[in-house]
């Protein structure tokens, strides 16, 4: 139970059950859908940009608590950032969910709730699913 709680931290439970920025964006600059063939979960991310600035991010889809919470927190985190900042956050987040190490270089805020997931390697992909949709915009290369 203790390990389970470490994975499903309050923030994850809360965002997983009441996701923010859920829905489409009319006249989105970008929209991409990602799919996890292992479980059948899918997530579509919408992005409205103004030059290099991300004005608005939203998502739709179905998935487990981990992937929904990750999508919700991602949209909160990336709104108002530049694409460059977004790709840095993405890179740190990716490194953290895989290694479990929280590095201080960048403030991950609520996303730090995902630091327990490294102990559940089968679920790392769930946390990364919505971020995969950001890959083309942030030009982030795969970690593995």
């Amino acid at each position: 139970m203790e390990q389970t709680k470490e994975l499903y931290q309050e923030t994850i439970l809360e965002h997983g059950q009441n996701p923010r920025n859920f829905g489409s964006i009319k006249k989105a600059t970008y929209s991409t859908e990602v799919f996890n063939p292992l479980c059948g979960d899918r997530c579509r991310v919408y992005l409205k940009t103004d030059g290099d600035n991300i004005r608005q991010v939203s998502f739709e889809g179905q998935g487990c608590l981990i992937s929904i919470a990750s999508a919700s927190l991602m949209t909160e985190m990336l709104g108002g950032r530049t694409l460059k900042e977004a790709s840095e956050i993405f890179r740190y987040f990716q490194g953290m969910v895989k290694s479990g190490n929280l590095r201080k270089k960048i403030e991950l805020g609520k996303l730090a709730a995902f630091s327990g997931i490294a102990k559940f390697p089968q679920r790392v992909r769930c946390a990364l699913l919505p971020w995969e949709a950001m890959r083309p915009f942030t030009k982030t290369t795969k970690y593995i």
């Binding site: 139970m1 389970t4 292992l38 479980c39 059948g40 979960d41 981990i66």
Partner: peptide, 28 residues
């Protein structure tokens, strides 16, 4: 509750079950 969340929770209780589409996406 998503099946994967159920599966992870049960795993924490020492119970191994299968979750997902079971290689039967059309049936799902």
């Amino acid at each position: 509750v998503h099946p994967h969340d159920v599966g992870t929770f049960l795993d924490g209780e020492g119970i191994a079950i299968r979750t997902g589409h079971h290689c039967c996406q059309p049936l799902m």
